[in-house]
Design a protein around this nucleic acid. Sequence first.
RNA 1: GUGGCUGUAGCUCAGUGGUAGAGCGCCGGACUGUGGCUCCGGCUGUCGCGGGUUCGAUCCCCGUCAGUCACCCCA
Length: 427
Amino acid sequence: MTLRAVKGMNDILPDEIGRWHALETVLRRTFELAGYREIRTPVLEPTELFVRSIGEATEIVEKQMFILKREEESLALRPEGTAGVARAYVASALHNREPVSRLYYLGPMFRAERPQRGRYRQFWQAGVEIYGDPGPGCDAELIDMLVRMLTGLGLQNLRVLVNSLGGADTRARYRDALAAYLRPKAAELSEHARRRLEDNPLRILDSKNPQDQAAVAGAPSILELLTPEDRAHFDGVTRGLTALGTPFEVSPGLVRGLDYYTRTLFEIQTSGAEIGSQNALLGGGRYDAMVKELGGPDVPAIGFALGLERVLLALPAVAPAREARCFVAPLGERAQVEALLVVRELREAGIPAEADTRGGSLKSLLRRADGTGSRLCVVLGDDEIERGAVTLKDLVARAQVEVPRAELVLRAREALASAPPAGSSDA
RNA sequence: GUGGCUGUAGCUCAGUGGUAGAGCGCCGGACUGUGGCUCCGGCUGUCGCGGGUUCGAUCCCCGUCAGUCACCCCA
């Protein structure tokens, strides 16, 4: 029996890694331009951390964590990034070093859900956390940055949903009001929603079941119950977004499955067949009470997390481009040895290079050169060696010149510096 | 976690109760030192895995695993 990867956990093969690198580069660049600095925290944390921050009654904590027992300890693979960063923020007393901390992270998260397109048991998230800024200006700035980043990546059909949950007391009042509204309609609800009625009625709001949607249609909106302070905060967010020209929809039905959110809540979705029903590309919001609950100072915070796999699914596939690399094709035994010297010389000059060591006809060597996606090929046979020269081929332009051996690095560099001709991407 | 569908070559898929095929890809040749086109030839499969029915199973039945769709959940 051959060994397989764990269910819902995927290998990322070299053919796909270019897209990952490209996305990661955009993420890091976007965050760093906006003043965020990277933080890396452990993949394994005390289970208690997630219970306390995400919430005991959430689906994630109840059913989806991978838990390791080791002696007396209970450890969990992180199901999301915010809790660990908050723990690190408190533990290292970052609030004493700077009034506002802008942090970002990028790494794998783990949830034991049933795998589906866009939903895996190990998946990658990137996110930021801002500590010490109560908003609402920074809320609007964050959402605007994200919309611009996704648009810049080439994503279309984005929906930006914004809501406010108010503070903990508002949330409790709304929970009661919603339950009171729905209880007489219990018979119209789906079985699942009926169970939710008492433990987490907010979740019924974003049910995809048509019965539930109908029942919820006339329900009170949480926005009506906001305190004047919460209301002013939310108005500040929407005013900021409007001023920035960021499109958004106020969506009172937007709720999230993590208990720590307060006030601002947002989600960016995309439509399109590629992504399937897991259409939330990123989500986030404010969690002003969490730092204090974890034993830190009373510092407000906001953050978001983006699913890398989902963004990659939503992004149009791009044909791989020819890379600025050089393939060395030796013909015959003398050339074999010479080829090794040539690649060493090219590499030392900073030009990625590989030599064929398997031999064969020039035809098959050139096919291999194509196969590597290289832009350049050096052909090296007895003829060239006699003349102290090499043949330098541009695989894209399909042109070649014989150059003195001593000038190879110089000429290769020139060839790579020139823009590849149009149509070069179809490797 | 619940329900449905699917699982055959590296990829996309066809197929039959008598142990398999196509296209693409890959390799070679036509072209003895010139690649993407054309033509010709060739290789590759525990028919997802385990059990059952049968003289015989890739095909029928059961189970299981994986993927996928919807729900659920969420990024």
